[in-house]
Nucleic acid binder design. Structure first.
Lengths: 115, 115
DNA sequence: TTGACAGGTAAGCACTAGCTTACGTATAAA
DNA sequence: TTTATACGTAAGCTAGTGCTTACCTGTCAA
């Protein structure tokens, strides 16, 4: 009876994870462009130094995270921002906001005392 | 003269990227634990279903992103939260906050009219 | 109809991320 | 001094990411 190599499968990312979706700078760039107005895939692809399919795949990730929505217009497909899931990020970071705000305050007091 | 396969090296991630650092749920868990008080590596490792070296590596990523700081205490190494870099996330998401707030407002108006 | 255009999707590749076990090193305890 | 503890780091493996090119389908224009 020999030791069995224990191969644990890494817990696969839930495809709708917003934190994962915004980790990529290209995807943040896409969100930025789409915050102005809805845009076609070709337009978006023209703004980045990579192929159209690559952009299409990034948009797929954003779609799964529900950060964008798509609709057909003629033979184009227009993507637009759906900001709502970003609220999760906002809420998460808001919990930590107090800590750096507090630090700032403590520093201010400290300097005040020294003076 | 034959075609040379064009292998473009993907632009490597800047190791200090805060968006990348917080994309992993284990690392967010670590930040959460450290927001209470400073903790040793062993304590932290005890809170997750993975080996101590794995946690050590996650802490390394958080260190590079400057999200935590470490100090020696005896033979322990205590990590503590440094919330400041999260301000970048906060500022980024704040730009989008207006959009979902506005949407909420528009929905309210719409419902108001219907009534 | 036929052709051109928009864009999704499959296949394949290099590289990276996230884990493991094994080992090295600094500090404390015996 | 020796031994135990806390931790980092190296090596190695698997699966996932981010790109590419090739190909397909749906829509408009001629």
């Amino acid at each position: 009876m020999r030791a069995v190599r224990h191969v644990k499968k890494r817990s696969s990312r839930p495809t709708e994870d917003v934190f994962y979706a915004i980790a990529d700078p290209t995807r943040r760039g896409l969100l930025d462009l789409l915050s102005e107005r809805e845009e076609s895939v070709n337009f978006l692809a023209g703004r980045f130094a990579m192929s159209r399919p690559a952009i299409s795949q990034h948009l797929g990730v954003l779609l799964q995270a529900r950060l964008v929505r798509a609709r057909r217009v003629g033979r184009e497909r227009r993507y637009r921002l759906n900001p709502r899931p970003l609220e999760e990020i906002h809420d998460w970071v808001a919990h930590y906001e107090q800590f750096w705000k507090w630090k700032l305050g403590a520093l201010g007091e400290h300097l005040g005392k020294k003076k």
